[in-house]
Amino acid sequence: MAKLHITTSINGEATEFLCEPHETLLDVLRNDLQMTGTKEGCGSGDCGACSVTVDGRLTCACLVLGVEAAGREIGTIEGIGGSDKLSVIQEKFLEHAALQCGICTPGLVVSTQALLEQNPNPTEAEARYFLAGNLCRCTGYDKIIRAVLDAAATMRGAA
C-alpha cells in the first residue's frame, strides 16, 4: 500500500508525514511522529485519552484518519505549556492532585482548555457534562472538577 504524503500543522508547527490511508491521526501522532503525549485508551472514541483539537475543535484522535490532517491545524498536549512552564490548567491539576496514574491527564488538559475557551465560567454541572467523554478511573473526578473550576476562576481573574 502506497503511503500518502501529508502536510499539516501541529501545535503551530508546519509538519509533514507519510501515512497509510487506514492509519488514524492517533496512530500517526504516536507511531510516526513519536508524539506519545496523546494516549490511547480504547481506540473507539469512548475514553477521551486521545483528545486533540482539529482546527480548534475538540475531538478524539482515534476517530480521525491521519490523511484528514492535511491542511488542518492540529492541537495536542505537546502544545500546551512550555519546556519549563505550565498552563494555568496544568498548574491547577497539580495543585489539586487531580491526577493519580496520569494516563487520562493529557486528554483532560486538552479538553479542559477547549471547555474554558468556549465557556470561561462553567458551572460544576457544565464542566462535568463537557468532560463526560474523558474517563478517569482513579480520582472519582472530584479533584479534577475542582481543578477545572479553579483554573477557570484564575483565568477569568487574570483576563
Partner: peptide
C-alpha cells in the same frame, strides 16, 4: 504527567 512527557507502557 500534565505535559504528556511521562512514558507509559505503549510509549
Amino acid at each position: 504527567k500534565v505535559t504528556g512527557r511521562a512514558n507509559y507502557g505503549a510509549d
